[in-house]
Amino acid sequence: MLTLRGRPNGRPYLFVRVVSGMVTQGDNTNRENWSRLMQAAQDGDRAAYEQLLRAAVPFIRTVVARQHRRDRIEDVVQDVLLTVHRVRHTYDPARPFDAWLATIARRRSIDAIRRRGRIAAVETADDVAYETFADPGANKDTELTVQASGLGAAIAALPEGQREAIELLKVRDLSLREASQVSGKSIAALKVNVHRAIKTLRARLKGSRGDDE
């Protein structure tokens, strides 16, 4: 299969993908260049690291796209970038960088699928939670669950810092350390923001229930 990809300088180059294989073989010069950039990054060259990550994003996206819907790809790509950052000391410059990267991308992709499966296993859909009791007055909590469809709107209305903390830690299920790297905020600040966000959401949802009554 032939694919056009973007180079760091913006010009496309030709990739030849091995059918059903995870390792994509591009031109050798580019691959060796990635290895050199990673070696320089391990030695502390930040510019080389940034260039490498930017060049690698389309490659990571291709690997992730095989297992994820379009709207979820970017989250998994970011997860892969965080993992690459965390384990960059394990890369051996004597080995091909693209194989190292493809394996990480594939594994994190699978982890994301499992994580979604775990979340789906413990969440209950709204439509099964309509009428729990014959007495309509007894269904107040159920009504609150139904109103949870407005949770997205309530999260969107949160102050920026609180919304970001909730999205990273509760919606995307990142660890505190990962969320800190994505947002650039300290772990303590994220803890405070997520605590405040939950408090705000609780107050707003209770308030909207009170309005309905």
Binding site: R46, L53, E74, Q78, L82, R88, H89
Partner: peptide, 26 residues
């Protein structure tokens, strides 16, 4: 596909945070 703002920002943050690392031995 263009790189999203968040991915772009993440790369900038990771790069800024990327000090030298001690490579693992075989």
């Amino acid at each position: 596909m263009t790189m999203s703002d968040t991915t772009d920002q993440l790369i900038a943050r990771l790069s800024a945070d990327a000090g030298p690392v001690h490579r693992l031995r075989h």
